[in-house]
Amino acid sequence: MLDDFMVRATLAGVLVALAAAPLGCFVVWRRMAYFGDATAHAAILGVALALLMNISIFAGVLMVALLMAGGVSMLSGRGVAMDTLLGVAAHSALAVGLVAVSFLSGVRIDLNAYLFGDILAVGRSDLWVIGGGAALVLALLGWRWSSLLMATMSRELAYASGIDPRREQLILTLALAMVVAVALKVVGVLLITALLIIPAAAARPFCRTPEAMAIGATGVALTAVTGGLKTAYLMDTPTGPTMVTLAAVLFLLATLISQGGRLAQRLTARA
């Protein structure tokens, strides 16, 4: 069964969606979208380093993503303007990474595959790595869920409940770096943040609790990934961008439905 490239691609997409969706909720709640971008863009630098040092791409990306996420989260809360800092970090990481890749003469690399993903080329060993990474992220989030929520709502309330919010921030940083490393092959560095935040944003209007939102986001992400894969196959479009396009369509629908519902409520209330 795993011999079929479509089956491998579907599995890879599903595994990444399962990890990215709940983590994406935290990215949205904590306003870390730019933080996600910085970490994801640093991945291209990781690719260059991995090729240069002849280690696995996964290891190289994970390392650089961890360094970037850790570095940025250490700088946060030190009075630096976060928005600007992250903008600088995100775009410089991408630029430096692209320059570094161009230095690798003799290595023939398909830059598009790293920028936009190459899910159809996922091999058996890739699947194990993606599966392991996704399982680790889900385990981390499941283990720390309540503490992460507490730290997200209020630093002080977290401390008063015996939770160290810095530790929870570290857990999220770790999970984010891991998701970047496993999603690289699926959607590429430029669209990883999209896969994190769009499903969460689409699920938001229909949920009353954080858990419901995580489940809803997972549903949206799974639909976008599997539907996008099929659409891309039928229409011969690039897979990663097609998945994200489908997610964006779902977000648009969700927004229209929730706004429409609110409008209808107001009209019936008036009548």
Partner: peptide
């Protein structure tokens, strides 16, 4: 307490 509007609670 400031609750982010994206966090349903």
């Amino acid at each position: 307490l400031h609750l982010d509007p994206t966090l349903p609670m």
